[in-house]
Design a protein around this nucleic acid. Structure first.
Length: 642
DNA sequence: ATAGGGTTACTA
DNA sequence: TAGTAACCCTAT
């Protein structure tokens, strides 16, 4: 098939299915929020967080959804002043940052943007006042409060309350935080109507009773049912009537502007069948391939988008299994189907994934169909997850010193990564100096994220505000760094049959497993954070400020109790969750990915070295500060990577 | 916000 | 324990 088809096939089953799950849980999270079931909302965002650490078929609308989730998470926790998503900001200040990101990527009328921002700021001030945090309220007032005339009155009022240290006033009682939350949700929903997720549509089509088709507004009970049903449905064998399929296709193609007719697809499938002798019907959506530039994030795995760590080392892991066992979904002809059951095993492509793609939102980020990337396989024999197959522990390939002449090979590596071939150039459009703009999906310092996990999974536990920054810890003076090292970064590329490449960059580590994988023609996804994080697991040691250490450890332990899988979390895990208290001083290193380095290079090329903040905000860096960028650039220079 | 020196985390 | 990338701190 066409190039698009090969792209499709380059997606792993996990990526595709995770995408479905992602869409579904975003949908659920919004429903829960709408229903004021904030506990459920937190649960769903938690699931999403977990999900996006895995490889996911990431499209630009995924970023939009993630931002919406981030925004709502911050809003949701906005009345808890002791939490932070990005230090040292309060949740609502973080919400403003996310809002700015959202507004950059989607066309939001300036007025609306201003209104929402103002609502957030006012609420924040009220929250501060109610909790007696007058100084903070004053800070916020001075820093953020609109100077618009129509808010002058409010400003005066707040000023007066602050001056008089009044934490109760009729104004403060007037608006409830719950209303505010719903207002923010309305804003998000007006901006971006999340389409019904593919999984729900399939469930509905399958004739499963009790599936609500309403968009985001149905009750959470309904949704619970749906969810249960979906689970039930998950690995069940099903048959899809051609009629149903046609219906679904009709709806979806219309909604998402797919111009290929069902019949065309069938023909294509037949041809394909002939060629492949596959027992399955392969409906590759041959929507006219769009040659336009791909959406900034298209083709990236979300793990890349979120973690950006994939290229550090390729652990490959479970991907091994997917080749041999494609997941297949077979949809039963539902009770409502009056068609004679057509058991033609069907393999078809995509539409589903796009179920969310071309939503009505006015996404400026070139959100486009990327149908080519996905396919749905409808057939029999379901093979439930083998992801469990855990990876070998030794993950890093041994250092291949001097393996490369240096520079050249490095840059090559960069080009190959990512199934979609999305490399550095795929960055979001440079936005001329929106300086204060908050980063895309960016999170705060690492260890705080770790904490936030805990907060998420076991209810807020505000503490260690006291954590005082360590006073100068300089003492033992290290020796001077030596110049040396030219060829530190190695790039080993492994290409599998599918053409996907693995690269091991920089600290190359033991690669026995890689070779094996290679030999076995395994698609090795570039994500890898999970395993690499083992070092992180070794609990950052030293450099602890005495005051924070205890609490920190406690929380860690607690988290580990809860999940037992802490090891598998990346440093960058926390998308939506907040952390309580200020930073502890420990950190664990997060190596730079090739992708990030490429962004950096591109940024420097575009804006020049030294404009770190501008660069940072122009690319989807996550968890990187301008200083980080500067340091990385310094390292790259040292290593002559640029 | 950035530059540059110092420190820490992590690997071999 | 050395080497080093990533990170932190602080002066500007």
């Amino acid at each position: 098939m066409s190039a698009s088809a090969s792209k499709v096939s380059s997606l792993s089953d996990e990526q595709i299915i995770n995408r479905w799950g992602f869409d579904y849980y975003v949908f659920k999270a919004l429903s829960a929020f709408r229903d004021a079931d904030y506990t459920a909302f937190t649960h769903f965002t938690s699931i999403i967080e977990n999900l996006v650490v895995r490889p996911v078929d990431g499209h630009s609308d995924m970023i939009v959804k993630l931002r919406c989730m981030q925004f709502l998470s911050r809003i949701n926790n906005g009345d808890k002043l002791d939490l932070t998503f990005e230090e040292p900001k309060t949740p609502l200040e973080s919400a403003v940052s996310v809002l700015e990101s959202i507004c950059r990527d989607m066309s939001v009328p300036p007025r609306e943007q201003e209104r929402v921002k103002q609502a957030i700021i006012e609420t924040l001030i009220m929250v501060c006042l109610r909790s007696g945090e007058f100084t903070r309220a004053e800070e916020v007032l001075l820093r953020h409060f609109s100077d618009a005339e129509d808010s002058a009155g409010k400003k005066k009022l707040f000023e007066s309350l602050i001056r008089r240290r009044r934490s109760s006033h009729s104004v403060l009682q007037l608006s409830s935080y719950a209303d505010f939350k719903q207002d923010m949700l309305d804003f998000i929903e007006r901006l971006y109507r999340v389409p019904e997720p593919f999984l729900l549509q399939m469930l509905k089509r399958s004739g499963h009773p009790g599936v609500s088709s309403e968009p985001v507004t149905s009750s959470s009970q309904d949704r619970q049912k749906t969810s249960a049903a979906a689970e039930h449905h998950g690995s069940v064998c099903a048959c899809l009537s051609l009629h149903s399929l046609r219906q679904v296709y009709g709806v979806l193609s219309e909604r998402y502007g797919v111009s290929v007719s069902f019949t065309q697809l069938q023909q294509e499938l037949e041809e394909e069948q002939e060629q492949e002798e596959s027992p399955e019907l392969h409906l590759a959506l041959s929507e006219t391939p769009r040659e336009q530039p791909e959406p900034p994030y298209a083709g990236m795995t979300i793990s890349r988008l979120v973690q950006e760590d994939d290229s550090q080392l390729s652990t490959a892991e479970e991907e091994e299994t997917q080749i041999s066992s494609p997941h297949r979904i077979v949809i039963p002809s539902g009770p409502d189907s009056d068609d004679p059951e057509v058991r033609t095993p069907v393999r078809r492509s995509d539409t589903h994934n796009h179920s969310s793609e071309c939503s009505p939102a006015q996404i400026c980020t070139p959100a486009r169909h990327t149908q080519k990337h996905n396919r749905i396989i409808l057939s029999s024999d379901v093979e439930p997850e083998d992801h469990a197959t855990s990876p070998p522990s030794s993950r890093r390939s041994s250092r291949h010193k001097q393996q490369q002449k240096s520079d050249h090979s490095e840059s090559k590596c960069v080009m190959v990564e990512d199934d979609g071939g999305s490399s550095a150039q795929v960055c979001s459009p440079a936005r001329p100096s929106s300086s204060s703009s908050s980063p895309a999906v960016r999170r705060s310092a690492r260890d705080t994220q770790r904490q936030s996990r805990i907060v998420l999974s076991s209810d807020v536990e505000p503490e260690d505000h006291a954590t005082s920054p360590p006073s100068s810890r300089r003492s033992s003076r290290h020796k001077q760094q030596q110049k040396s090292v030219h060829s530190e970064s190695k790039c080993v590329m492994v290409e599998d049959d599918g053409g996907s490449c693995v690269q091991h960059s920089t600290p190359a580590r033991p690669s026995a497993t890689d070779t094996q994988r290679h030999n076995r023609s395994v698609t090795v996804s570039s994500e890898s954070e999970d395993h690499k994080s083992s070092p992180a697991t070794q609990t950052p040691r030293r450099r602890s400020s005495p005051s924070s250490g205890g609490a920190h450890k406690r929380r860690r332990a607690r988290w580990q109790d809860v999940s037992g899988t802490h090891e598998n979390w990346s440093d960058e895990e926390s998308l939506f969750s907040a952390t309580s208290g200020r930073s502890s001083k420990k950190y664990s290193r997060k190596m730079w990915t090739v992708q990030e380095s490429e962004w950096l290079k591109e940024g420097v090329r575009r804006f020049g070295a030294g404009h770190w903040e501008k660069i940072r905000s122009s690319f989807p860096f996550t968890g990187r500060t301008a200083v980080n960028l500067k340091d990385r650039w310094r390292t790259m220079l040292k290593l002559r990577l640029v």
